[in-house]
């Protein structure tokens, strides 16, 4: 699907990430130091970069990212950080269109976030109406219709649906939903999200029709038009 550069000093972790991304259909390149990674990111074409925050050799992950941006390179970056190293700079990554993930993480979480980063670049979000199958939401009037029938949603349900509609056909994990819809960072995925999703489902799904929101076991949800 895309070429991904992994900048990670620990060979074991790098191999595991590479294996997970390859299985997910990506092409993978790896660099062991910040300097090496920066050189490759600047000279080659990548869809996204997975960057460890802590790198040996005097150039840490955030320095690599800053240098990359200073040269005008806009490749989306996913920073891997230890929980204790999550500070304002790491949190600020989301505002800049990048993302971060705390170690240890699950690979489903990594691939789901990478997919969002990759898609964000290819599809600029200028639409005013989002549509999946016969479900439609109008971003301007904030109204939802299914097969022409208007559906009443609570504000939070609307934002949850909007987030799912913005990423059709992509796995969104519970932590991603929690971050995007509730704007808190929760490292422990909570099943309270499931209650919200099931409430949403009850409102938008039609009896007899194939479901639009599907559960991905152990990961999260995916919204797509039935085949």
């Amino acid at each position: 699907m895309a070429r991904i550069l992994i900048i990670e000093d620990d060979a074991g972790t790098a191999n595991e990430i590479a294996a997970a991304l390859t299985d997910h259909g990506h092409e993978v390149a790896a660099a062991g130091t910040g300097r090496d990674g920066l050189l490759r990111a600047a000279t080659e074409e990548f869809g996204a970069v997975v960057l460890d925050r802590m790198l040996p050799g005097g150039m840490d992950g955030l320095a690599v990212l800053a240098t990359l941006r200073a040269t005008g390179n806009e490749v989306p970056v996913l920073v891997l950080s230890a929980l204790s190293a999550v500070d304002e700079r790491v949190r600020g990554l989301k505002a800049g269109g990048d993302d971060y993930l705390t170690k240890p993480f699950e690979f489903l979480e990594l691939t789901a976030r990478l997919d969002v980063l990759l898609r964000r670049r290819t599809s600029p979000q200028r639409e005013t109406v989002l549509r999946v199958a016969d479900l439609e939401i109008d971003l301007l009037t904030q109204t939802v219709t299914r097969a022409g029938q208007s559906i009443e949603l609570l504000p939070r349900e609307y934002r949850l649906l909007e987030y799912l509609m913005r990423h059709p056909g992509q796995v969104v994990t519970r932590t991603m939903m929690f971050e995007e819809v509730w704007h808190y960072r929760y490292d422990e995925p909570t099943n309270v999200i499931d209650v919200h999703v099931s409430k949403l489902r009850r409102k938008i799904e039609i009896a007899g029709a194939p479901p639009l929101i599907q559960t991905v076991r152990g990961a999260g949800y995916i919204l797509h038009a039935p085949d």
Partner: peptide
């Protein structure tokens, strides 16, 4: 195994919180 890992992550989180390093953020 995910459940086991969750227990470990929770333990690590507590240890990390007790460290006080997160006050930086």
């Amino acid at each position: 195994i995910r459940g086991v890992l969750k227990t470990f992550s929770a333990l690590l989180r507590i240890a990390e919180l007790e460290d006080g390093a997160r006050r930086m953020g």
